[in-house]
């Protein structure tokens, strides 16, 4: 007998209907249609569930976690704490994973978080040249451009050119260091605290920390930009 758990995507994901790969065939008004990718993933999942390798409920929990709980706001909390607490910052640069656990920001295990600090002399940029290794626990899942071959190759060859395309201009004397992630070693950038933020508390500071500033392709927002947002 086939497993028959109800796929959440049948009802819960309105974007299903907006996705270009979903072709609804209106000449078959009485039936449903699945895109080729939907068919592939359903076939795979149903076989793996039958064989006992995966638990449908666990899949739903994983998806919900990454859709709603894990994201760049976690990394932003870490950065803001480092900006206001020099002792925390020292621990963060010493052992990223351990310091993040203090804020309940944690990995799935296995990978080790390394935090690299931007200074006026040195700017850091993170890439995965092999595939798409990324610090999930602090930044969530990677943006599409992070996984693209042009970014993966050009970040190493021409980091300044890549930064320019992101609209990030650095002083000519600032060195750029590129960090190539692996499955075991994930990097996050600690950006510099923007000027004019002495009056802000930790939560307001976290609001200035963009995802791209923690990858190194961008800089934190300035307080003025934050007010407009």
């Amino acid at each position: 007998m086939a497993q028959d758990h109800d796929h959440p995507q049948d009802h819960d994901h309105p974007q299903d209907h907006d996705h270009p790969h979903d072709h609804h065939h209106h000449d078959h008004p009485h039936g449903s249609d699945l895109s080729p990718m939907d068919l592939r993933v359903r076939a795979l999942e149903s076989i793996l569930v039958e064989k006992g390798y995966v638990d449908p409920a666990a899949l739903d929990v994983l998806i919900e976690t990454y859709e709603t709980k894990v994201g760049p706001h976690n990394g932003a909390r870490v950065v803001a704490r480092a900006w206001v607490d020099p002792a925390f910052k020292a621990r963060l640069l010493q052992d990223g994973s351990a310091a993040m656990r203090e804020l309940d920001v944690g990995g799935r295990g296995g990978e080790h978080m390394v935090v690299v600090e931007n200074t006026p002399d040195e700017h850091n940029l993170v890439v995965c040249t092999l595939c798409s290794c990324y610090p999930w626990p602090v930044l969530g899942l990677p943006p599409v451009w992070y996984k693209s071959p042009p970014y993966r190759s050009r970040a190493v060859i021409d980091p300044r050119g890549v930064l320019a395309e992101f609209g990030t201009a650095l002083p000519a004397q600032t060195r750029i260091r590129v960090w190539d992630s692996t499955a075991e070693l994930r990097y996050m950038v600690l950006p510099m605290r923007p000027p004019g933020t002495d009056h802000l508390d930790e939560a307001a500071l976290a609001g200035l920390v963009t995802r791209d500033s923690m990858i190194g392709t961008g800089l934190p927002s300035s307080p003025d930009q934050g007010d407009r947002a």
């Binding site: 796929h7 995507q9 299903d16 996705h19 979903d22 390798y53 990454y66």
Partner: peptide
């Protein structure tokens, strides 16, 4: 995070395995 449900499902299958 995911552009379509099948992306989410694929991600979750890989992590589970």
């Amino acid at each position: 995070v995911f552009a379509a449900p099948w992306e989410a499902q694929t991600f979750a299958l890989v992590v589970s395995l």
